Simulated scan of single mutants.
Amino acid sequence: MSAYAAEQTGRRRICVIGDELVAGVGDARGLGWTGRVAARTRSDEVLEYYPLPVPNETTTALSARWETECNRRFGPGENRLVVAPGSADLRHGVTLARSRLNLANVLDDASARQIPTFVLGPPPRTDTDAAAQAELSTAFSDVCSRRGVPYVETYAPLADHEQWLADLASSGGTHPEQAGYGLLTWLVLHNGWHDWLGIPQDD
């Protein structure tokens, strides 16, 4: 094995696939929750993060592209997948059953390839029906629970959160700003992220 190949084997590559929130749209610091989580995650191993967002993406489109895009970033070391579906399905007429199936297909395909997965649920938006958003988040949670995949519920804790709603009011209801991304970061870091990576959590 070459020195380069040996170095790559020791790396952990994490692909994050989802909608525009994965890109941190609306964050003046340009970090979003992905950058903040990366900055707050300490590991003796090299962790490489590859955000792969598509604005307003449905789970149908996400399930069709994740493997091809992630394959270009995955390497001979340990590969992991974070799935962060938004609520675009509700605005594009995707049925709840299809949304469940799309996420299930991604998780099952990743499992078949022995790629550990972690799912961040869709956070609230004020331009989309609230009851439907809650139902979608519950459905995604159930899909993950049945497969033993960590799921971070974001809708319930943020639906009535004053700062989150203030951020949405400034953006037309579609995305958070700096404070909102900080809230998403906190939810990720305090709902199984370090356990999923198998590393200790900082105090």
Rank of each mutant, 00 (worst) to 15 (best):
G180L: 12
D160I: 13
E177A: 10
Y4C: 12
V94D: 04
D160Q: 14
I17H: 11
P200Y: 05
R40W: 00
G32S: 06
T58G: 14
T185Q: 01
D202S: 12
F140T: 00
R36A: 05
L168W: 09
E57I: 11
V16M: 06
D44W: 03
T34A: 15
A110N: 08
V94C: 07
P123I: 13
D89L: 03
A104R: 14
L136E: 02
D27C: 02
L101Q: 15
A5T: 06
E7K: 10
G180F: 11
F140N: 02
I115A: 06
A169V: 04
W193Y: 04
N79V: 12
I14P: 05
L47G: 00
M1A: 13
A84D: 01
W164Y: 13
Y49R: 02
V25M: 10
T41G: 02
T41D: 01
V25H: 05
L165R: 15
V143E: 11
R146T: 12
R36G: 07
S111L: 08
A110V: 07
Q201R: 13
R65P: 00
Q201H: 09
D167Q: 06
A179W: 02
L31H: 05
W186Q: 12
H190G: 02
L47R: 00
G10F: 14
V37D: 01
R36V: 08
G10L: 14
L197W: 05
F140E: 00
A38C: 07
I17M: 12
P76F: 01
G172W: 13
D19Q: 10
A179S: 09
D44L: 10
A38V: 10
L165K: 15
R125L: 12
S63N: 14
E78Q: 14
W164C: 11
S111Q: 13
L183N: 00
L90A: 00
P51C: 06
G75H: 08
R125W: 03
E45G: 10
A131E: 15
T58F: 08
